[in-house]
Design a protein around this nucleic acid. Structure first.
Lengths: 229, 229
DNA sequence: CGACAGTTTGAACAATCTCAAGCCGCGTGG
DNA sequence: CCACGCGGCTTGAGATTGTTCAAACTGTCG
């Protein structure tokens, strides 16, 4: 039988990259490959955290809700991102597919066994967790102290960097999320996001092809703006 | 020679709790105990990340700055908290003592060796990292979507919970940080923090003894307020 | 081609910030 | 032991950024 992990395009970008070639079969047998439609919910805030996920294709948004419906998106996942580490009994967020997605689903018990079995796998997860923590701190700085304009600039620069990491073009960025999603990620309203996009376009700093494709025309300017320059 | 870790009061609250009694000596020989004054800087944003720290007494604030001086406090540390995990070459934040502190300092290389040597130690760090990440997500919800009043209520409830975890009284909470620190943690200004404290006092929800001791008089009310109730 | 979700634009509003001034409490030194 | 000074805290009034509410537009997908 052919080992599906050996041919996985996401392996280079994901935790699985830390597992040696011959051990990939163990990974494959601990997980199930799953395809979900756009809009599907992977996990719901408050549900028992029975599974962990490795996203191998598509994009996902992660969010938290207040009782009255206010929403904060705490992250967007793309190829290679891992979801669900931690020993909490319940998920602390909801995860929803922004595009059709493919993912590997690990039952928690099997996953824990993998950690025991492959120290490099665990080390990789620790590194990823702390680098996510660092990204979360950047986002706190953004949410707590940056102006709307600075937030949008940071967001665009960040998207472009991520595209670069995944080997995609960094000049023209595809936005799989809506304006409302962006607003809920940046602590703004849809209207403010829209207004600032139009402003930046008017200034010639970005180009807009439809609502979901942005071209960064003045990257240095945007980068400076992102840091308050 | 007596092993200092065996008598450490912070052990039960810290990562060291994951290391078996007989292995504590290895921990002790990998680290140096350090005492610092209030106001001392443990690490500076941008400096090479040569050391990791375990805080065993006192309180520390962690913050990031924008070039123009705007500041976001991304966390407060207390007894048992660990600082510096990750493979980045530079610290992404500044850490400063709010009170006199005692800490164990690990050179990065020795620390990595400890991880290799004690899988439980590494596992504990992974758990802590993901639980910190979860706390960071709560804070993003706070910064992105809560009102000033909700932020203060969340902050007070959070402080009280932390005090409870450390075995301290949860009704009267000591604030080792200034109003400005609180503001920089909650994405507000000093003035707003002060005004809301006075409001809450007027409403009989909290008591203030001096500026740095708060009594939670209406915990259910505050908890509801924290979630937007 | 039609409809509807998502986006853009406009005008009025409000939460929070800014600027300014006074107050309090605590540590210090006379 | 008390007066002094200073950092930090509180209070007030006015300014501002971003929100809210409302309506028109667009482009995408049956």
């Amino acid at each position: 039988m052919v080992d599906p992990c050996s041919f996985c395009e996401a392996r280079l970008f994901s935790v699985c990259g830390a597992v040696a070639e011959p051990d990939l079969a163990r990974l494959a047998e601990a997980s199930t490959v799953l395809d979900l439609d756009k809009g599907a919910t992977l996990v719901s805030e408050g549900d028992p955290s029975t599974h962990l996920f490795n996203l191998t294709a598509g994009a996902v948004k992660i969010y938290k809700l207040l009782p009255d419906g206010r929403r904060q998106i705490v992250g967007f996942l793309s190829m290679g991102d891992f979801l669900g580490v931690g020993r909490r009994a319940k998920y602390g967020f909801t995860a929803e597919a922004l595009t059709p997605v493919r993912l590997c689903r690990f039952p928690r018990a099997k996953f824990t066994r993998l950690l025991d079995e492959f120290p490099l796998f665990e080390r990789e997860l620790l590194c990823r967790a702390s680098s996510e923590l660092s990204a979360a701190q950047d986002q706190m700085l953004l949410l707590g102290r940056k102006t709307a304009r600075e937030r949008i600039a940071s967001f665009l620069i960040g998207l472009s960097r991520r595209a670069g990491r995944l080997g995609e073009p960094t000049g023209a960025v595809q936005l799989p999320m809506t304006r409302t999603d962006i607003a809920d990620y940046l602590g703004l309203t849809t209207e403010t996001v829209s207004r600032i996009f139009t402003d930046l376009k008017r200034q010639g700093r970005i180009g807009l092809a439809g609502a979901s494709q942005v071209t960064l025309l003045d990257r240095p300017g945007l980068a400076a703006m992102a840091e308050g320059g």
